[in-house]
């Protein structure tokens, strides 16, 4: 009797519980802007009246140091890597995500098991095995995938924190130098993400566009989802509060245009436009 809320057989020792909250995942490759987007979603959702927690990949209290050390120490291979990722994920799932869902919060997960599957596969772990590790994982309510191509990713990486050893797949010797390896590794990683997006029905967002566009798209999808789930319209946000949400690169915000394809019900981003116009 499989619990459909879990990817595999779940956590049999946990008492069955109602997860009143929503689990929303933002996926995408390195440098695509996930973390910044999540940071901006949080205050917006709070203004909308939702309790929010966010959780980040490999940031569990239990394993953060171990994983960082192991990466620095150059002794990990596909198998141990996959297991440490899974342990980190399990720690956050049981200690952060599930309690928050029980309490009725919106959980924003910056990356989820799909990241592990994509990376593990490139490292050469058996894909079936690597997936079965996550049999205890909750299936997210919504996966928003920030899709980009390598060509658009490269300038972002260079203007951002730069290309690091792991993001460049240097452990896999994908190229003669960092740049070449980065491109080759990320190209393959993106290919994996694209395949997963198809298989698991991610909601794809064009991440080549501006951060404001992406943020508004994310808000559209999340807003729609939460409204459907509640079965009631979201509260109208107060202008004052919406103003506070607007601390996202003000000058870049000017090129934002409401997306013609998403003429659903007005979501918070329309208020955002109003505020922009008023300035």
């Amino acid at each position: 009797m499989k619990d459909s809320r879990f990817y595999g057989n779940g956590l049999p020792y946990k008492k069955p519980a109602n997860f009143k909250g929503s689990l929303i995942v933002i996926e995408g490759t390195d440098h695509v802007g996930r973390s910044t987007q999540v940071e901006q979603l949080k205050p917006w959702l709070e203004v909308e009246g939702y309790g929010v927690v966010s959780t980040r990949w490999t940031r569990s209290a239990l394993l953060y140091e171990t994983i960082s050390e192991a990466k620095a120490g150059n002794r990990l291979n596909a198998t141990t890597f996959a297991l440490l990722y899974a342990a980190d994920f399990a720690d956050r799932l049981e200690n952060e995500i599930i309690p928050a869902l029980r309490a009725g919060l919106v959980v924003l997960a910056d990356r989820y098991m799909y990241t592990a599957w994509a990376r593990n596969k490139l490292m050469g772990a058996d894909p079936t095995w690597s997936r079965s590790l996550f049999g205890f994982a909750l299936v997210p309510d919504l996966v928003l995938y920030l899709k980009i191509d390598v060509g658009s990713l490269v300038p972002r990486a260079l203007e951002g924190k730069g290309m690091d050893y792991w993001e460049s797949g240097m452990h896999l010797a994908y190229g003669a130098d960092l740049f070449e390896s980065f491109c080759n590794y990320q190209r393959r990683l993106i290919r994996e993400f694209n395949a997963l997006a198809k298989e698991f029905n991610f909601t794809t967002i064009d991440a080549r566009k501006s951060p404001e566009y992406i943020q508004n798209k994310l808000r559209d999808h999340i807003g729609n989802f939460l409204r459907l789930r509640r079965g009631a319209p979201m509260q109208q946000p107060a202008i004052l509060a919406a103003d506070r949400v607007l601390n996202i690169a003000p000058e870049a915000g000017m090129d934002f245009k409401p997306d013609a394809t998403s003429e659903s019900e007005p979501v918070a981003d329309l208020d955002l436009v109003k505020v922009q116009a008023a300035k």
Binding site: L62, T80, L83, A87, A90, L93, E94, F136
Partner: peptide
């Protein structure tokens, strides 16, 4: 801090 699942995965690692 260990749950049955993290206990298991750490020993597996």
């Amino acid at each position: 801090l260990l749950t049955p699942t993290t206990f298991s995965l750490l020993h597996a690692a």
